[in-house]
Design a protein around this nucleic acid. Structure first.
Length: 363
DNA sequence: AATTCGGGGTT
DNA sequence: AACCCAGAATT
């Protein structure tokens, strides 16, 4: 059965009412729901990409204290902005957001564009974020299809297309567009997401508590636990890393800024190299470090610790050493800093763990 | 269309 | 461990 014919069977007006009236009563009190400023709605939506609400809340509050307006973010230096994002992940989001905010400041007179084509042209603004901000901040009837919404709609209309396939998203955008409550697109879109987060959860949906159970085809067919269909991605690769915290005789520490593109772009780290295999002798690491960084170093015999850190697509297994830097350092993007100022730089979480461990050795 | 990009909570 | 999360850019 086509999505169109399924929609024709629905009482859409009653569905909208059941969903939105539930939302008005049950919605969580979240910081960005107290805001009307399109800039703040926008920042919240960028932070919420692939990131849980509970994780975002403290980052959002701190970010708004530090960068409360378009102009404050547009004129901020990159290091302080990256530091504010430290630990949140997907760091291209903040680089793209600051770039987009600068464009709004320069080309849109500081006003977040309410035009779909214009807003979607900004860096980091895709179909979901575009629909979310335009509906929540400006009340426009645009679908905002995220993972929650695909799960909810796949069950509501018993849609068995694989939601992992990019081509499936347009099916859900079409159906959400047909279901859209045009009197209040903001509440409607947020209600779909809230339902997915609270009731219509991935593994064991609380159908007995669901405000739109009477409208749900999957519940009627008893297949809600089999939806949505989502093919699983293949397991990740493992990479062995040797890292060393090198100190100078006067107590400073060598750090390096990562390349401006790729994994953890522009974040700071301690010198490290990919090891040919795990269980390398220490002198192999020493020679690889000296070659990569063009330095002379004395690495201590005993491994300090090892850290396993999983990303979405690979896992680092890091052997951590300490050592003494015995030559000058000329490599680009490196810096010698006092121990007390290490934590003022933005590090990835794995290298934060390294520093936390090594710092603890001193006491 | 497939891969790259973080980190942490759930099950 | 595997899965998932208010996804977008790149290849």
């Amino acid at each position: 059965m086509s999505e169109k014919s399924k929609l024709q069977k629905m009482n859409i007006t009653k569905f909208q009412h059941d969903l939105v009236s539930w939302y008005e009563i049950e919605k969580r009190d979240l910081p960005w729901r107290r805001e009307r400023d399109p800039y703040k709605i926008w920042v919240s939506e960028i932070m919420l990409q692939q990131t849980r609400v509970d994780t975002v809340i403290p980052f959002f509050n701190r970010f708004m204290d530090q960068f409360p307006t378009i102009d404050s973010l547009a004129s901020a230096d990159e290091e302080s902005v990256l530091k504010a994002w430290e630990g949140l992940g997907y760091y291209s989001r903040i680089r793209n957001l600051q770039s987009a905010v600068k464009e709004v400041a320069e080309n849109y007179d500081g006003i977040v564009p309410a035009d779909k084509k214009e807003f979607l042209s900004l860096k980091g603004v895709g179909p979901y974020t575009g629909g979310a901000v335009l509906s929540i901040a400006y009340g426009l009837p645009e679908p905002a299809v995220d993972g929650n919404v695909m799960r909810v709609i796949s069950r509501l209309l018993s849609i068995w297309d694989d939601i992992a396939k990019p081509s499936s998203r347009k099916i859900f955008e079409y159906t959400v567009g047909e279901l859209m409550y045009k009197e209040d697109p903001s509440s409607f879109n947020q209600a779909l997401m809230e339902l997915g987060a609270i009731i219509c959860t991935p593994t064991s949906p609380s159908c007995l508590l669901c405000p739109v159970q009477n409208h749900c085809m999957a519940f009627e067919e008893g297949v809600q636990r089999e939806l949505p269909v989502k093919t699983k991605k293949k397991s990740d690769k493992k990479v062995s890393i040797g890292a060393v915290v090198l100190s100078t005789n006067d107590g400073r520490v060598l750090i390096e800024k990562r390349p401006q593109s790729g994994l953890l772009a522009n974040l700071w780290q301690f010198p490290n190299v990919e090891m040919p295999s795990a269980m390398n002798p220490r002198h192999v690491l020493e020679s690889l470090i000296e070659k990569e960084y063009g330095i002379k170093a004395k690495i201590n015999m005993d491994k300090v610790t090892n850290i396993t850190h999983a990303f979405s697509h690979l896992t680092w297994e890091i052997d951590v050493y300490t050592g003494v830097l015995e030559s000058n350092i000329t490599k680009e993007r490196t810096k010698l800093v006092e121990k007390e100022e290490v934590e003022s730089f933005a590090f990835s979480v794995s290298h934060q763990k390294i520093w936390k461990h090594v710092k603890g050795l001193d006491q």
